[in-house]
Amino acid sequence: MTEQSSRFRFTKSPHVPALTVLQAAMHDFSYDRHAHEEYAFGVTLAGRQDFFSGGEFHRSPPGNVILFNPEEVHDGQPGGGETLDYVMVYAHPRQLEALFADALGHEAATDFRINETLIQDPVLRRDILELVRLVTTQVGSCIDQENALYRLIARSVQLAGALQPNHVASRPDTLLGFAREYIHSHLSEDVSLDDISQAAHLSKYHFLRLFRRQFGMTPHQYVINCRVNAARAALDAGTSLNEVAFQYGFADLSHFNRRFKRIYGMTPRQYQSHITT
């Protein structure tokens, strides 16, 4: 199998907002380091899934569950020379806040994070695969998909243990948070490293070192990643390719195609055709 014959298919739930399923088969393809705005819940079906995340290199054999928190930098490629088959469920944090809160028995649960990246749990695996089945085969009602998503979240919280202690933000966390907010607020502008480091109240090169250590990518790579994610949301809404490319600062469609494919495994046109069928 060549890179061109690797298969990626995105399916959006017709019932649950901001819920998307990816079915992928990869042999000679690898993702660039990137991060999604969503939570991601995946299952390795066949082959081995090798990836960097959280400052560590991971190997996921068949049957393993993979969990990514929002904005968690990772890459991915097949390992061991075999074709990698896997599925991934993406759900936006806004969609899951109430579910996490209910599963925790709290009134609110913003910014809930799951500490484990690789999990061997047959119940969670079953819950993810059932939600994938409901979305990709377009069977069942809205309440069926909502119930399947709730079971997935409830099991994730159960595996995470009792209430996780609140994370007390350090000063670098806070300053880098300012930088991320600035980037997200200026995605359609030609921002510079000076602009972003000033927003973080740090010198340019101190900021660059701190950012790379924290997120595993340069600020430039992060800006491109955020632009591609924003472009994906615009494609979901039916915006034309040319308009999306221009709005988010890509030089031309060819440049947009290359950047998008390194994160989503397909061109923007292919992606838009998937989610509108």
Rank of each mutant, 00 (worst) to 15 (best):
Q23V: 15
R171H: 04
I183T: 04
V244L: 06
S273M: 15
A233T: 12
F215W: 06
E82Y: 01
R209C: 03
G216C: 05
L124D: 01
Q158E: 15
G105P: 07
D75M: 03
E71W: 14
A46G: 06
A24W: 03
D236E: 15
D121R: 10
V228W: 06
L67N: 01
I143H: 14
A160L: 02
P165S: 03
L45P: 00
I114T: 05
E107F: 09
T110Y: 08
I153D: 04
Q221M: 13
E37S: 11
Y248F: 15
E181L: 14
T239K: 14
A18Y: 11
V123K: 11
D173Y: 04
D32C: 11
Y264H: 14
F8T: 12
E189H: 12
P165V: 08
D121G: 07
F250H: 00
P61S: 08
R269K: 14
L193T: 08
A101K: 05
L253S: 03
D127E: 12
S192D: 05
L253W: 02
Q272F: 07
G216L: 09
Y86T: 06
P17M: 10
T2K: 11
T136A: 03
S60Q: 03
Q158H: 15
Q158C: 02
V139C: 04
V157H: 02
V123P: 01
L210S: 13
V87E: 02
E37C: 05
R258A: 15
D75E: 09
Y31Q: 05
P122L: 09
H36K: 11
A160W: 05
F215H: 14
L99D: 08
R133W: 06
H201E: 06
L22Q: 00
D127T: 02
V223K: 05
A25N: 09
F207Y: 09
Y90M: 13
A109H: 02
F112I: 04
L22N: 04
P70C: 09
I275N: 07
D173S: 10
A18S: 13
V168W: 10
S13P: 06
F178C: 10
A160E: 12
R33I: 04
L22D: 06
R258C: 01
R9C: 05
L19K: 05
F100K: 02
I128H: 01
P14F: 06
H15V: 10
M1Y: 08
G80W: 04
